[in-house]
């Protein structure tokens, strides 16, 4: 139990998607202009990660890993389908996003209005595919670990984009050198925030 909690804390603060791995930077820079939309996108990312990472975990464990097909009988024990990993992961993500969009639209119209425009964008957010790939690399023992990792990474991303949006809202009132305005200063601030997050390394 405690190592699940460890994975969770680690993925929020230390291995933060944005500051340590630069995943999802494109939408992070493009959508962090105001807090409301930023937190909406953050929530959507969190949601999709929490669903796709455990699903991909199960697929990886029972279909793709070398020797994963052993449950089908001895003849399949040698089969190694890991080269299909990338294609399957991206297909699962694209499919899941489409499915989620339809489910949310039907049953939770309020949430759909809040997330609506962001959901299709998420299929090509590197943070989502990155989550699945890191999950594969880290080799978690159970599906609960991968779920904790997914929720943690999602929350870390949400935290980063909301903080960034809050800072950028304030930035409008500050006097920045003309050529640096917009994206230039956004990169530098993200770098500084990343340095701040490195303080968590000791935990």
């Amino acid at each position: 139990m405690s190592d699940i909690f460890n994975i969770f804390i680690r993925s929020v603060f230390i291995d933060n998607m944005v500051f340590a791995y630069f995943l999802g930077m494109c939408s992070y820079l493009a959508v962090s202009k105001n807090v409301k939309t930023a937190s909406g996108l953050g929530m959507a990312v969190c949601f999709v990660l929490a669903i796709t990472v455990p699903v991909n975990y199960l697929i990886n464990k029972y279909l793709l890993q070398p020797g994963a097909l052993a449950w089908l009988g001895d003849r399949f024990a040698q089969v190694d389908l890991s080269f299909l990993g990338l294609i399957i992961f991206i297909a699962v993500i694209a499919g899941m996003v489409q499915l989620l969009e339809m489910v949310i639209e039907r049953y939770m119209p309020a949430l759909y209005m809040a997330l609506g425009i962001f959901l299709p964008l998420i299929a090509v957010n590197c943070a989502i595919l990155g989550g699945s790939l890191f999950m594969q690399e880290k080799n978690f023992p159970t599906v609960a670990h991968s779920f904790a990792y997914a929720i943690g990474s999602g929350l870390g991303w949400l935290l980063a984009i909301t903080a960034m949006a809050a800072i950028r809202e304030r930035l409008k009132y500050s006097n920045i050198p003309e050529p640096l305005r917009g994206n230039g200063i956004a990169y530098i601030i993200t770098g500084l925030m990343g340095m701040g997050f490195m303080a968590f390394l000791g935990i």
Binding site: P179, L180, G191
Partner: peptide, 14 residues
């Protein structure tokens, strides 16, 4: 360290 990459790109944009 990772943050320096961001700052370098920021400077390039500048």
């Amino acid at each position: 360290l990772p943050p320096m990459a961001l700052i370098l790109v920021g400077i390039m944009i500048w």
